[in-house]
Simulated scan of single mutants.
Amino acid sequence: MSVTIDIAGLPLERIVFAPSPLAELGTALHTLSEPGHHPRAHNWATAVNASLPPELADRLCEADFLWRTTFSDLLMGFAGLGDAVVQPGATLAEDLDLVDKLDDEQFVTTALEFTCGADYAAAAGLSPLSDAGLRTRAVELAAARGPQQRRFTERLLEDPPAVRAWVRRLFEDCEQAFFADTWNRVRGQLAADARQKAELLRRRGLSATLEAVSAALSTDERGSVIAVDKLVSGRTTAVDPAVGPGVTFVPSVHQWPHLMVLYRHGWRPVVHYPLASRELSGPLPVEQFKLRMEALAHPMRMQLCRSLARGPYTTGELADHHSVSSPEISRHLTVLKKAGLITAQRRGRYVQYQLDLKVVGRLGSDFLETVLR
């Protein structure tokens, strides 16, 4: 499974790396709402949540469906303006000005898409503002999320301009309460990463640049498609003349373990990626992670891992220890080796196997990163 972006014929200068204050605020708000997704940011999230004014915390709860469950495209509204020249602003105010340029139909449909049943990849044309059936469905689904979201959705459908102003004030108050300090701390790092990736693209080309962004990104031999390894499937194009050719890569400090792709119909694609971490290696391919989980699901292989965690063993030693034939042990070892869970080292006539403790120790992080990517 993957999300693919068609870039056939796209000039390299249309592949842009740029930080976005609003996108970073969105990831910061998500981290505050779901600190369990972001164990590395636990101390930061705890400190900020403790310092939030109660009134602001209540307002954030009212609109948190824009960033809690997933990441609303409104937080990268520049991509919906149908002009490839438009990129993220240098300040939060500039990014919010770009969101203000979206028309009411775009704003409402995008705000409600994940929680109110809109088909993310469907052609544009219908919205809860113009379609009574979608309007009723939006309110029903919002009600299932709780009374706060129902009230928000009803207000949004009745008076979009008022709610748009309310959302803007909310983000501006976040900037005053905590995000100005956060942005001042991370913006230099994000700008440096964007410059480095742009220079890498110019010098070494797309394939090397995607590899530097994330191991979950790749391109084909012709450089006509960008593939993003995720547990979802989707496709979009960066060469739609109706919206302007281009794809934007937005770096983030708060993003890990998420790697998000905006592939909304009628919008330019955006790849929102976390800065590389020195603590862990790159993200594991989805298929490789599935192999590891399936390998460990068998009770005999779990027993073998217990033995191999304590030291190296040959096939014969494992067969004797577990009272199982050598051919059966070999079959299980082959599965574990294919999954990358064990290492093999020849010692004279014999091959000794041992559990790769570093790989196994990463499984918790790998699981989190794979399902949240």
Rank of each mutant, 00 (worst) to 15 (best):
D104Y: 08
R373L: 02
E328S: 11
L126P: 07
W256G: 03
R151A: 12
P251V: 01
A8R: 12
T236W: 00
P285T: 07
E140H: 11
Q352K: 14
G77Q: 01
L231R: 15
R14K: 13
T315A: 15
V48Q: 04
N184G: 15
R310L: 15
A118V: 08
H321K: 15
T315S: 13
G246R: 00
P241S: 02
A28K: 08
P11K: 02
P54S: 08
L74F: 06
L22K: 00
L56D: 02
D83F: 03
G9K: 07
A309L: 10
D173T: 04
S277A: 10
A162R: 10
G348W: 10
E279Q: 12
E175M: 07
L66H: 03
E13D: 14
P128D: 04
S224G: 11
P251I: 02
R168H: 10
D173S: 11
L275S: 03
P285L: 07
V228T: 04
D58F: 09
P35Q: 06
R14A: 13
L157M: 00
N43C: 11
L29W: 06
L284G: 02
A138C: 01
G125Q: 00
L280V: 14
V360M: 12
R278N: 13
F367H: 13
Y350Q: 14
D320H: 10
I15V: 14
A23N: 09
L372F: 10
F78N: 03
L190R: 01
